[in-house]
């Protein structure tokens, strides 16, 4: 058996193991009126109530939700697909705004030691700030919860992009710079023809980190500002004490995060080069 097949087999076995263990630990099998005391039934414990759902319960909900993911029955009842799309839209908007700012500034920092030294303190101070700490300020200035979430995504994804772009540009091989010099290329031509393709793999690493952070942050941001989005959905279901939906959304958040990450990894494949 090849290594790959072994891994697949192990993965599948783990999946079933998790389901079985999940079922046993959550103990859903015992939750029927038959083996409750009269007292418990009187206390309403026989009624559906908040409990950690087992895998099968989550699976049933998943099938139900995913068979019509985009329904919209008003503010508090939207399909999970719709909610995810809201979140993805905000992440994309913030992310691409950040790209537009981070790439040119990253090049400037990477190409000019003066700019590097001048901007370094600002980056060092702003970078470690939790993106959510910007939220009150954003809400006050922008006065719109959706745009504020977009801004928070922008501010959290800009740092890895900026730092990786600057680093990628700064560490371009001296030989390649010398090639551009001996060919009498100007700064702009060098940036486009030499620095950009040379630094792209490093830049993409930054983009990937930024996208990862954005997806982490959007859930928290939407919990804070409410309205729409997967973060709001999770929080809403928690308020309804519908933990099955909460567990289901956790899985969906993970799945979408994985897809976003693979998209960037796939795109970066076109710009990688081998020395």
């Amino acid at each position: 058996m090849t290594e790959k097949n072994k891994a697949i087999l192990l993965s599948i076995s783990l999946f079933f193991l998790l389901i079985i263990v999940g079922e046993i630990v959550t103990g859903n099998g015992d939750r029927s009126k038959a083996n409750m005391t009269e007292y418990e039934i009187l206390m309403g414990m026989g009624e559906p109530e908040a409990h950690v759902p087992g895998p099968i319960e989550v699976g049933k909900l998943a099938i139900k939700e995913l068979s019509h993911p985009f329904y919209d029955n008003g503010p508090n009842d939207k399909g999970i697909g719709l909610q995810l799309l809201y979140s993805i839209g905000r992440v994309m908007a913030g992310f691409f705004l950040a790209v537009i700012v981070a790439l040119p500034v990253g090049f400037l920092i990477g190409m000019s030691p003066v700019f590097y030294k001048a901007l370094q303190p600002y980056i060092q101070i702003l970078k470690p700030v939790s993106p959510l700490a910007w939220m009150p300020l954003a809400l006050f200035v922008i006065k719109d919860s959706i745009m504020s979430s977009v801004f928070v995504i922008f501010i959290c994804s800009i740092w890895p992009m900026l730092i990786n772009t600057a680093f990628g540009v700064m560490t371009v091989k001296k030989d390649w710079i010398n090639v551009s010099k001996t060919l009498e290329m100007g700064s702009l031509e060098t940036a486009i023809k030499i620095l950009l393709p040379a630094a792209l793999p490093t830049i993409f690493t930054g983009l990937r980190i930024s996208m990862g952070i954005s997806w982490l942050v959007i859930v928290a941001a939407e919990m804070l500002v409410g309205g729409t989005g997967i973060g709001y959905y999770v929080w809403n279901e928690w308020n309804n004490l519908d933990l099955t939906s909460v567990v289901f959304s956790i899985l969906m958040i993970g799945f979408v995060g994985m897809v976003l990450d693979s998209l960037i990894a796939y795109t970066s494949g076109f710009f990688n080069y081998q020395e």
């Binding site: 091989k173 030989d175 390649w176 010398n178 090639v179 010099k181 001996t182 060919l183 009498e184 290329m185 023809k193 030499i194 393709p197 040379a198 710009f271 080069y273 081998q274 020395e275």
Partner: peptide, 30 residues
């Protein structure tokens, strides 16, 4: 530096993201 003086470095210094031909056409275009 000037295009009047061509340099061949010890470790070829070709641009790895370009094909052999593109490495040369880029220089000619300059």
């Amino acid at each position: 530096p000037s295009l009047d003086r061509g340099v061949i470095f010890q470790n070829h210094s070709l641009l790895p993201w370009l094909s052999a031909q593109k490495n040369i056409t880029m220089a000619i275009a300059c």
